[in-house]
Design a binder for these strands. Sequence first.
DNA 1: ACCGTTGTACGACGCACGTCGTACGAGCCT
DNA 2: AGGCTCGTACGACGTGCGTCGTACAACGGT
Lengths: 114, 114
Amino acid sequence: MARELTHPAAADVSLDAVLAALADPVRRTILAQLARGHDDQACIAFELPVSKSTSTHHFRVLREAGLITQRYEGTAILNALRTDDVEARFPGLVSSVIEAERRARSDGGASAAR
Amino acid sequence: MARELTHPAAADVSLDAVLAALADPVRRTILAQLARGHDDQACIAFELPVSKSTSTHHFRVLREAGLITQRYEGTAILNALRTDDVEARFPGLVSSVIEAERRARSDGGASAAR
DNA sequence: ACCGTTGTACGACGCACGTCGTACGAGCCT
DNA sequence: AGGCTCGTACGACGTGCGTCGTACAACGGT
């Protein structure tokens, strides 16, 4: 059957959706790891402090916000950043968030929050 | 008496709080207008599609996230961006969001969202 | 053919957030 | 002193979101 993942067109990526997606720490973790490692990491490869279904949920939010692409490879799904599209639409936004996230992670991090 | 507004120290500004604050369109409207006009605009000067109490709430969130400073001037409160502090901590983040917000506003805006 | 792997669908639940109205406080002006 | 303006405090309410578990679907290997 289908096995089709719906991605928004580059022009349809909304600031609202992107910022809402970036607001969650789990999703930022995913993005940071995706930016750090090579592309095409399966969802399984991420160490997330949530259940499998929650994981699926977060990946879907990221995809529907236009931040990542997903494609099937057997039963697994390979994830990749949509760096080009997003940077073209919101220059500097996602990259600065990822950079900040990575630094906050390696840092002692003055205050953790939430 | 007090009349003291509590602001977080520059080092205590957390990525989580900043992104959570940026996730709301009303608060981005405030930031964009603050960036556009001069500093020291009173809360009243903002045309927001919400009630007065909700307005207060959003300004407080922005202040406690470390994105703006507020100081009393009579009964009014003057607002200003904390550009320096925030840019030092998360380079490029807020500026890119404000830029994107402004463009999305003047733009036709492909899709509105929410 | 079977089973394991990988991810999805579907409720369900609880909490946090955006929203509001009303009542109040603090300061200015006449 | 009195009234006006600007903002806050305090509930209250609805909804959306993050979370989970269970059941299921698609694909690959043995």
